[in-house]
Structure formats: structure tokens, C-alpha cells
Amino acid sequence: MTRRVLVINSGSSSLKYQVVDADDGTALAVGLVERIGATGGRLSHTTAGQRHVVEVDVPDHAAAMAAMAQAFAGYGPELADAGLVAVGHRVVQGGEAFARSVRIDAEVLDTVIGLSDLAPLHNPANAAGIRVAMAQFPDLPHVAVFDTAFHLTVPPVAHTYALDRKIAAAHRIRRYGFHGTSHAYVSRAAAAFLGREPDQTNVIVLHLGNGASACAVRGGISVDTSMGLTPLEGLVMGTRTGDIDPAVVFHLARTAGMDIDAIDDVFNKRSGVLGLSGRQDMRDLVDAAECGDDAARLALEVYCYRLRKYLGAYAAVLGRVDAVVFTAGVGENSAPVRAGALAGLESLGIELDPEANQVRSSEPRDIATPGSRVRVLVIPTNEELEIARQALEVVDSRG
């Protein structure tokens, strides 16, 4: 029997969706509704190799869900005949309440909303999408799959900040980590590529997109990750600072007269490689650096230097590293970033094959030299498939 899952990723101003065959990994349809709550709404819907783009009026998430339903009705596949067995929802923050994916009921939804102080831009939008989807598909089980759940195995020594413990406890301050569905999927795919069981495999996964995070995975279990209480901590990103002295906040408040919201905006939206170079897209950054732009060159060096620091740290955490794995848009496609991240790490047993690194492919591949003790893999991520599979696991566990 065909088992397909409608995967929904509801953001504050967008709604992404896919119909995924959880058994063979194929996507029957992929879509995006943009500019929810603003003028100029647009829907793109791709199925059977054809992409359809239309303007839509989407004042809220209910209207966006209705537009999605109309796209399926007009362009296919018919949802009633698609073999749907569940709806899987991406939820960014599960706090300490959710160590795994769960079937959504009123109590779960209330808990997701209650965690909004930890993810104010994401959880309310995730909850809004869940509400309208449950109303539109009342006969299907709905499952929440949390970005943070994979990282709840990170031990206290790694997730605890050296902050006054009463304040930390009162405000739920700890390292949560994000990109968990990607790290879970890619770490298992890397073990399979190596012909090993996940519980016998140690990998460092570098999820490098506009947002970026590193994860140390020991025996299939996350034991450390670079993002923290929020997705701001860790690696240099497209627009985010990554690691920065927290006293910079006090300094800007005192010397520049900036309030908390203004500093938040700078750290999250105007920093990273964009703040350093004026360019957010890694392809543009690399091109500019190669053409002699000093700001772009420094931004690329800072980006790769931070990656090397985390690779060294996580090699120490794991003790034995079987593979370094690159994934997501930058990780899968930028040979210069991969080369820069691994430069000088031969003493850790990491030897990159320059020719293999230049090969472009959508398939998983090994780009290390034959003699490298640590393999270097490029594994395309598939967060939607991971959400679909986790949703099915929850449904199957309930009989």
C-alpha cells in the first residue's frame, strides 16, 4: 500500500508543502505560498515536472492553506486520491517537552504555543499552520516534528550555559540546537553510505545554508551542536553573526544608543557574510573574492575559519571521527567553502581530494583522498522526507 504524507512547513509569511512518498522517498508535489499577510501573494506548485506560478490573495494562513488546496485540485495530484496517511508539521522549538515527534492534540498544540517565548518568530506561525491544516484535513492524523528533538540527547555538560542557574532555570535557558531533522537524516545517510550501522558511526555534520549549524553525532546520537538557545549562536551565516562576545550588546547599547530590538536586527539580519561583504549569496561572495574584492575575501576566510574551529572542537568531543559530512545549499554546492573549511586539517586525518571536490552532483559522494583516515562526504539533505518518515513512525506506533 502506498503511504504518503503531506509535509507542511508554516512560517510567519510563507507556507511550504510537499506530498512525500515515505517509502520510496519521492515527492509527488512541491509548493510554496509566499507573502502571507502582505500584498502580492504568490503560489508556486510543481508536480509531474511542471511548475505553475499564480498570484494569490493570502491575508492569513487559512487563505494560504485554501490556496494550496486549490493548487492540488487544479494541477494535481488530487489529495483525495494521493494515498495520504498523515500530515507532518515542522515545528522549530520543542523545548525540553518533546524529545521525539508526537501526534498533535489540543495539549500538544498548547505546549507548542507556550514555547513561543523561545522561538517568537517561528512557533506561533507553526501553530497557525497546524490549526488550519487540522481543520482542512480533520480525518488525517497530524504529527509535529521538532527541529530541536534530535539534540535533546546533548548531555548537560554541553547544553548548560555558565549562567546563574536560577535565572537559567526560570527562563528555560540552555542549548537547544536546530536543524535537527537535517542532522538526523544526513547522519543516518552517511552511515549507510559508509556501509555501517548508525550506532557504530561517528560523524560531524555541517549543515550549511543561509542558516548554518554543526553537529557532533556519536553512534547516531547528537552529543553537541553549534546553535544554542536560538539559531543565532555558532557558525557564521548568511545574515547572522554566529558566536560573538555577548558584551557587544552592552557596548552597542551604551555607545551607539541602540535598543534591544535594533541590536537583535543587526545580529540576525544585517551581519554574517552579508554584514562583512554586502553579499548574502555564497556564490556571489566566492566570485567577488576570486575577483580580488578584499571585503569578500575576508568574509569567506572568516566563514571557513569558524568552520575549522568547530571541526577541531568536535573532533575532540568525538575522539574518533569516521566522516565529515557537508549538506544543504552551500555545503552541497560550494567547493571553495569545503576546501577552505578543511584546509590544514591533515593532522586530524582529514585529506580532501581537490579533483573530487570540484565534481558537481546531486548524488551522495566521497571527496576525500583514498588514504584519508576520515572520509569527507557530500550528502544532500531531505528534511521533508525525514519529517514524513517520522510522522509515519508516530502513526504506526499508535496502531
Rank of each mutant, 00 (worst) to 15 (best):
V143A: 03
P246Q: 01
D224P: 07
V56A: 13
T39K: 14
L229E: 07
V325C: 11
A315F: 04
L118V: 11
P141G: 01
R365H: 13
H251S: 14
R297P: 00
L385G: 01
D105G: 10
G37S: 11
M134L: 10
D24K: 01
T230D: 00
R320C: 12
G238K: 03
R297C: 13
V19W: 10
A341L: 01
E351M: 12
D281C: 05
Y161R: 06
V205R: 09
R218K: 15
R131L: 15
V266H: 12
L140I: 08
V33G: 03
A168N: 08
P138Q: 11
S101I: 00
A158I: 03
R389D: 03
L140P: 09
V30I: 14
A288T: 09
D245V: 12
A82D: 07
L32G: 04
E78W: 02
K16A: 03
D294P: 15
T181F: 08
L121Y: 06
T2F: 01
L232K: 04
A162L: 11
L342A: 08
A27H: 14
I8P: 05
A315W: 02
G371P: 00
L377R: 13
G209P: 07
A313M: 08
R35C: 03
A335P: 05
G211D: 09
P364M: 12
A168E: 11
A192N: 12
G74M: 09
L342T: 01
H89M: 09
I167A: 14
R320Y: 11
M65I: 02
I244H: 00
D261P: 00
L392V: 10
